[in-house]
Amino acid sequence: MKKIGLQTYEIEKNISVIATTSLVGNKEGQGPLADYFDFIEKDDKMGEKTFEKAERTMFLKALSDVIKKAGLKKEQVDLYVGGDLMNQLVSSNYVASELQIPFLGLYNACATMTESLIVGASMLEAGGAKNVMCATGSHFSTAERQYRYPLEFGNQRQSYAQWTVTGVGATMLSSTHSSNVKIKKVTIGKVTDFGITDIANMGAAMAPAAMETLSTFFEETKTNQKDYDLIATGDLGKLGSDIFKDLMKQKGYDIETNYIDCGHMIYTIDQDTLQGGSGAGCSASVFNSYIIKKLSSGEFKKVLLISTGALMSTTTNQQGDSIPGIAHLVMLEGK
């Protein structure tokens, strides 16, 4: 790995995305990206007794599928990196215990997808490991239970709130097998805190982090928005992405034409999800379906994926502390 600038690294080996799997819940399956997802689960309990168990089952199904798709045996996967939104990363831990693949648990809230891609690519760069599996996900009902109110409690959401995506995305990276899609550069974000304290306004809390990471990437690689076919943020939602575009404009980059937000595009406006999707499963499921399929087909050549995470804890938030945000960037290239 070659370091270019303070936060950006160039991947020197040939690291390919050899297989991806996306699995989503029923609501996401009714959204505009339905045709791109590999699995749409009608039952958000996956036949389990609790939502926490259902989240695990979702992970297991997606991970088993990505291993199969990559044409590998379980023993050939050297490492599994990833996480979820649950305290102590329970979902990932139970799944790693089931799969018996060496596991590094990561937490950067909703930015865990790009974080795991960066760690996975670094492990492949270091040599030794040949195939690394990266996966993150989230479940609406487990996140609601942990961060907000009971599911059947009748309350009104703020008009600027977002909706946690039920979904898992898994990516198999390899330095020995090859494919059309390769990871070229990565930028590791800094935790950025602009003082937002409203737990419902996560887009506003994360937008500055996304702006810092993307503008740093542009400066350090001496490129700009015109050099890429697609710039995708993770889960800023509609309001958050509007703020992000404004912030980028202040930095001198007009990203209006080739920019999408995974959270904004995963639902339609009539699905009652307010500003759009959020959660670790948001960028994970959109990246491993829509973005990867468009990269493999050659429709996109160069893509920047910037997963964004709001690193809040209900405890510190109730104590009046602000919500720090983080964003990591991965640059992918298709043929």
Binding site: Q158, S159, F194, G195, I196, P208, L239, D242, I243
Partner: peptide
């Protein structure tokens, strides 16, 4: 000052019910 300006901007930008 940066945070104050940002929070002010976010409040103006956030849709009100």
């Amino acid at each position: 000052t940066r945070n104050e300006k940002y929070i002010e901007y976010v409040e103006a930008k956030t849709p009100k019910a």
